[in-house]
């Protein structure tokens, strides 16, 4: 698959000669259709989250996002993301380097394995760690004797999140690095550059925007993961609840406004990351253009 490759909606492609584009009314019709679809499917849920969040007034809103349990959920969410994202970033770079710069057999299977967490049901993603580390699981008794708690504690939640977000950075980098080929690295190598030097001086500058986009998406998913984390969390209030789980708890306590208020917090985190992404794209587009005029 092409992966969610960085897209540069630069002016160039939008400007096409009139004979190979649609007439203006058709264009507007198509734009209208696209916006209508996005509106019903994506925008409306977003708006409803905010409407529900502020239904009981701004006071309730701020109370619910500054309540100790919400703050501890926020802290845990950040901790989990802070571990899961860097780990998957390192993995993504290593995997992309091996896959894009070398030839070996079984590459398709390897790529498929990297993709697999995309397609595995979140329920299963959580279940597998219970099967491994649960008290009745493969390593459970061994861990129990040593007093190590993995599931129903932070390590299990980190593992589940890492599993779910494995593909994001790797899938972003692989097509990008494949497209860039190996000439620049080979040139550097023939000039006597060492491995890490080649990576830092040649490869990294080329992939940094794609890498950043992958990290941003990975982070967004890590913070928002619900299904897998729910299976391994144990739902101890104020201790093993991440933001998505805290939202569910509030919702189940009929505190609908509070639950949507916390949800809006996550939406805002997402929006911030998406804005960051736009800046990334804009900058990389700018750089590309600067590069071309050089």
């Amino acid at each position: 698959m092409a992966g969610a490759i960085t897209v540069h909606t630069s002016e160039e492609t939008s400007k096409r000669p009139r004979h190979i584009t649609e007439s203006r009314p058709v264009q507007w019709l198509l734009i209208g259709l696209a916006l209508l679809f996005l509106g019903f499917i994506v925008l409306l849920p977003l708006v409803s989250v905010f409407v529900e969040a502020f239904k009981k007034g701004i006071g309730v809103y701020f109370d619910s996002i500054t309540e100790p349990d919400a703050l501890s959920a926020l802290r845990l969410t950040l901790i989990v993301a802070l571990i899961a994202v860097p780990v998957n970033t390192i993995f993504g770079i290593a995997a992309a380097w091996a896959i894009s710069k070398f030839k070996f057999r079984g590459k398709n299977i390897l790529i498929t394995l990297i993709d697999l967490p995309f397609a595995v049901s979140p329920v299963i993603s959580g279940l597998i760690y219970v099967l491994l580390f649960g008290a009745q699981g493969f390593f459970g008794p061994w861990l129990d004797e040593r007093g190590i708690q993995i599931i129903f504690a932070v390590p299990g939640m980190v593992l589940a999140t890492v599993f779910v977000t494995v593909p994001f950075v790797a899938r972003e980098l692989i097509p990008l690095m494949q497209a860039q080929g190996v000439q620049e690295e080979e040139a550097a190598a023939s000039l006597g550059a060492k491995g890490w030097q080649i990576f830092w001086k040649v490869t990294l500058p080329n992939i940094k925007w794609g890498l950043l986009y992958g990290v941003i998406l990975c982070n967004a998913r890590a913070m928002g993961e619900f299904g897998a984390v729910s299976v391994v969390s144990g739902h101890i209030r104020g201790e093993t609840n991440t933001l998505p789980l805290h939202i569910e708890i509030l919702y189940n306590e009929y505190q609908f406004s509070a639950s949507f208020a916390v949800a809006s917090l996550l939406v805002m985190l997402a929006v911030v990351t998406l804005i960051a992404k736009s800046i990334v794209e804009w900058k990389s587009g700018q750089q590309k253009r600067a590069h071309q005029t050089d």
Partner: peptide, 20 residues
């Protein structure tokens, strides 16, 4: 006292699986 709430079956399973 810390609390954990959920469906009864789910909670029972969590305790079996090592929720302390």
């Amino acid at each position: 006292i810390k609390q954990s709430h959920g469906g009864s079956g789910k909670q029972g399973r969590a305790v079996i699986d090592g929720l302390k």
